[in-house]
Simulated assay, not measured.
Amino acid sequence: MLTGARRVGWLVRTVARARSADGENERGSTSLELAILFPVLLLVITGLVQFGLWFHARSLALVAAEEGVTAARTYHSGEGAATARARQFLDNNAADTLADITVTASRSGAERIRVEVTGRALSILPGVPGPAVAQSAQGPVERFTTAGDP
């Protein structure tokens, strides 16, 4: 039977032997874990950055479409004013963020205007095109009416 001091000494020696045995068997495991996890971590970070660029480009396209609708809604304005205003906004704010930009404006009847902005977001991977972006906005056109006219 082991006494108190001997029992503690025996326990410490047993734990030390177990630790040294485990350490020898797991030599290099940290390097292997990092070699497996690091590319996954880089892929996740790249995906998050690409998503952020796409979301920013999408927001800029939506604001440009809204600017175009605002310009085309005024009395005696047309589709040309909508595309010009949207292009001006994109040239001033999204020159480096959106590529292959197209702006189209169309009227449905004399009462509504619709502006659509499409393009591609900036890509952080060389040779890979960025994700597509398409946003549109629409609104009623200002017009004068007479009493009894809808």
Rank of each mutant, 00 (worst) to 15 (best):
Q88T: 11
E33R: 07
Y75T: 13
E116W: 01
T102I: 02
E67C: 10
A105I: 03
L48Y: 01
V103D: 03
I101R: 06
E116F: 00
R73Y: 08
G47K: 05
T97Y: 05
G47C: 11
F51A: 15
G127W: 07
A84E: 12
V115N: 01
I113L: 07
G78M: 12
A121G: 07
P126A: 10
E33D: 12
D96M: 10
G109Q: 04
I113C: 06
A65V: 05
E116R: 13
L48Q: 06
S123R: 04
L37E: 03
E79Y: 09
L122S: 07
L90G: 04
E67A: 15
Q88E: 12
E79C: 14
V115R: 03
A95L: 09
V133D: 00
A110R: 13
L125F: 12
Q88C: 00
L43Y: 10
S77N: 12
A105W: 06
V49S: 11
R87P: 00
L42I: 09
L32H: 03
L122M: 13
L48D: 01
G47T: 04
V63A: 14
R87G: 13
E33P: 05
T74N: 11
H56M: 12
G52Y: 02
V133T: 04
L42M: 14
V44I: 14
A71S: 11
F89I: 06
I101N: 01
V128H: 04
T70N: 14
T70H: 11
V44D: 10
S59C: 04
R58D: 14
F38Q: 05
G78A: 12
R87F: 01
R85C: 04
I36M: 15
I36V: 15
V40A: 15
A64L: 04
L98E: 02
A35Y: 11
A82L: 05
D96V: 09
I45Y: 08
L42E: 09
H56A: 14
L53T: 04
V117L: 09
V40E: 08
L41G: 14
S77T: 15
R85V: 05
T97Q: 15
N92M: 07
T118G: 03
S108W: 01
